[in-house]
Design a protein around this nucleic acid. Structure first.
Length: 433
RNA sequence: GUGGCCGUAGCUCAGUCGGUUAGAGCGCCAGGUUGUGGCCCUGGAGGUCGGGGGUUCAAAUCCCCUCGGCCACCCCA
């Protein structure tokens, strides 16, 4: 079609089936629904409550809540201005949830707030496998406690969803970035260590050295990796409190028999991230191997203006990557439901009869298909077949006269006459089973 | 933002030493069955050969530009 009207690069349509692939999700809408159903179900099991926030947020919220020196904020935001308001299409959902928590004083509901979300996010990156400009995240935030059990419950919740879907062989990486005091000491040590290597560092790493030193740790540059071989290790700088929190998290994970590997290079770069950081990886979904990740952010609420600390932990996962992992492991979602009964009509009078009966049967809760083009009976039968109708009613002049419909069971091909008066009961009885 | 690969029907693809009206299978529509789907047979619709420009008597085929897709880098979901 005219390129001017095509869907935007990096976005895709989710269609009823997968008969076309250009600019469409590889998975049909029924598969998306299935995944969403699983998410809702598992979240419910963990007594998390759904929250829905706007897709449009004020740019300063994201800049502050995600971090000005992150790639997301510095180069990947879809942001624009109207009048004196700066808008951004949300690149993630944690900051908006914290915003909503503070704006609506959710702490006043009492207790820990366990909130979850599913929805689209936007980042202006070059698309590739598992990466899109509009993509879909689900996640949960457990807010109002710094108890390590919250960390583990958050991880357990995330894992339970993948478990329920049936994925296996995933790798959970775990680390602690400590509290601000211990991290500050580590950052100083890291900066001191790297000082002599300054001239060997890339431009971005040099910038990070000043603004956001932790992120140097996850550099991919071979040479910088080598330099970092002998660098100070974050875990060695944890103070007693941080050490204790981390140890507790590991113990609790073991109690729940959730396997993990410790990875000291796994970091969350910004100051308001504390303690636990984790990421869930799959080896078979391409270069973008992270299915989901998260961590503790005890200081974010204050960053956004809260007088009180709201110690919290959350995770976020990508639905597109979940789909990739399902495909790689041959996991199929249930097929979209078929119609219960298709009404085939022959002749004008029968058409009117069928049109009314479709409405009635639907009111009885049956899903009903019918012809809207006045086509031949044969065509209508083909249509019924395509819609995978369980039963097809055939109504023509003979049936109207006899006061009963021909009811055909499509799979067996068996057909019998059923009086109009008994139709609803007949169909309901058979279709329930 | 950078790099590599790829764009022929709705889908999967054939057709490229340049040469008459661009093909197949599947799907779609219709007929064979004047009231019956799935199998089979027959016919039909559907293509700016991604787009623009150039070379040529002649371009799906060669050249340039451009758009789109895929994959990778950076980084993340």
């Amino acid at each position: 079609m005219n390129p001017e009207y095509r869907s935007i690069t990096g976005t895709f349509d989710i269609l009823p089936d997968t008969s076309t692939t250009d600019g469409a999700s590889d998975a049909p809408s029924s598969t998306w629904r299935y995944i969403e159903d699983v998410i809702h179900k598992v979240m419910q099991r963990f007594n998390a409550e759904e929250i829905r926030t706007p897709i449009l947020e004020p740019t300063p919220l994201i800049a502050r809540g995600v971090g000005a020196y992150t790639d997301i904020v510095s180069k990947e935001m879809f942001a624009f201005e109207r009048g004196d308001t700066h808008y951004v299409l949300r690149p993630e959902i944690t900051a908006p949830v914290v915003r909503a928590y503070l704006q609506h004083h959710l702490d006043q509901r009492g207790g820990v707030q366990k909130l979850y979300y599913i929805g689209p996010c936007f980042r202006a990156e070059r698309p590739q496998k598992g990466r899109y400009r509009q993509f879909h995240q689900f996640g949960a935030e457990i807010m109002g406690t710094d108890d390590p059990r919250a960390d583990v419950e958050c991880i357990a919740l995330m894992m339970a969803i993948y478990e329920e879907i049936g994925l296996s062989g995933l790798r959970l990486r775990l680390n602690s970035v400590g509290n601000p005091a211990s991290r500050a000491r580590f950052v100083e040590a890291l900066q001191n260590y790297l000082e002599p290597y300054r001239h060997e560092l890339s431009e971005t790493s040099l910038q990070r050295l000043e603004k956001n030193p932790l992120r140097i740790l996850d550099t991919k540059a071979q040479h910088e990796q080598e330099i970092l071989q002998d660098a100070p290790v974050l875990l060695d700088f944890l103070d007693e409190e941080s050490e204790k929190h981390y140890a507790e998290v590991k113990t609790l994970l073991q109690d729940l028999e959730i396997a993990f590997v410790e990875d000291p290079t796994l970091v969350r770069g910004l100051d308001y991230y504390t303690h636990t950081a984790f990421e869930l990886e799959s080896a078979d979904i391409g270069a973008q191997s992270a299915l989901g990740g998260g961590g503790r952010y005890d200081l974010l609420a204050q960053e956004l203006g809260s007088k009180q600390a709201v110690p919290s932990i959350g995770f976020a996962s990508g639905i597109e990557r979940l789909l990739l992992a399902m495909e790689a492991q041959g996991i199929e979602a249930p097929a979209a439901p078929a119609v219960d009964v298709f009404l085939a009509a022959l002749g004008d009078e029968a058409q009117r009869w069928v049109f009314r009966w479709a409405q009635q049967l639907r009111a009885e809760g049956l899903s009903v298909g019918l012809d809207l083009r006045g086509r031949s009976l044969k065509s209508q039968m083909k249509e019924a077949n395509r819609q995978r109708a369980e039963y097809t009613l055939i109504i023509g002049g003979n049936e109207l006269e006899a006061g009963g419909a021909q009811v055909k069971h499509m799979e067996s091909g068996e057909q019998e006459e059923v009086a109009f008066d008994n139709l609803v009961a007949y169909l309901q009885r058979r279709i329930e089973a």
